[in-house]
């Protein structure tokens, strides 16, 4: 057997400025010409919601939207999407108002361990953006590139259908940070006695 050929791993080319809009904000980062979009998003932009599952486009955990189209960020060079508009899972919610797809994944069991969830969310958000009332076949086609090991997909499909329903009705996710009124500020019309005043 011949000696293995040594391929240097440490890049020698200089870094260049890479610019894109990520979740609505302009980012300029230094990247190599061969940098992978997934690495740039996770390590430079800081959107750690984009998950690394397999590095070879088989699991769909790293999916992001580029100009609204689902793309596997582990198979995309950062410079391929230079100047484009990128949406990650962090960009789906409107402030504290969850996107309906997020709300429904949370409420209908679409997410168990949650690692594949960001990929599923952006892909199905893109689907619902185009077609708020997708057929089951269309849903399956949209998420066919995403692997989920926990749910068996059934509750994911339900979640997407429910989210479509919400979108069609113009509903958005609830905002849990808003102050909630309290049912018993001092107890509801009850003949309470001052603390410690035993009867």
């Amino acid at each position: 057997m011949s000696a293995p050929i040594h391929i240097p791993m440490v890049p020698s080319d200089p870094m260049e400025a890479w610019t894109a809009r990520v979740n609505g904000a302009q980012f300029t980062e230094l990247a190599h010409s061969h940098s992978i979009l997934l690495d740039v998003l996770r390590d430079h932009v800081g959107t750690l919601g984009v998950k690394r599952g397999c590095d070879m486009g088989t699991c769909g955990c790293c999916a992001v939207l580029v100009d609204g189209e689902p793309v596997l960020s582990c198979l995309t060079l950062a410079f391929e999407v230079e100047g484009k508009d990128i949406t990650t899972v962090e960009g789906l919610a409107d402030g504290h108002h969850l996107h309906p797809i997020q709300q429904c994944f949370a409420d209908h069991g679409g997410s168990q361990c949650g690692f594949c969830t960001p990929g599923f969310l952006v892909v199905s958000a893109a689907l619902l953006d185009k077609e708020p009332n997708p057929s089951e076949a269309a849903i399956k086609e949209a998420i066919e590139g995403n692997l989920c090991r926990c749910t068996g997909y059934q509750q994911i499909v339900t979640s997407i259908q429910e989210a479509g329903e919400m979108l069609r009705n113009g509903l958005t996710g609830e905002d849990r940070t808003e102050a909630a009124s309290d049912p018993h500020p001092v107890g509801p019309d009850e003949p309470t006695l001052p603390p410690g005043d035993a009867r």
């Binding site: 959107t47 990650t88 969850l98 994944f105 949370a106 409420d107 997410s111 949650g114 969830t117």
Partner: peptide, 17 residues
């Protein structure tokens, strides 16, 4: 719904990496 599901759907759940 799982009590931590909102972390998961917003990308705020921190996994090992």
């Amino acid at each position: 719904p799982l009590v931590d599901s909102r972390w998961k759907v917003t990308g705020q759940a921190e996994y090992g990496d």
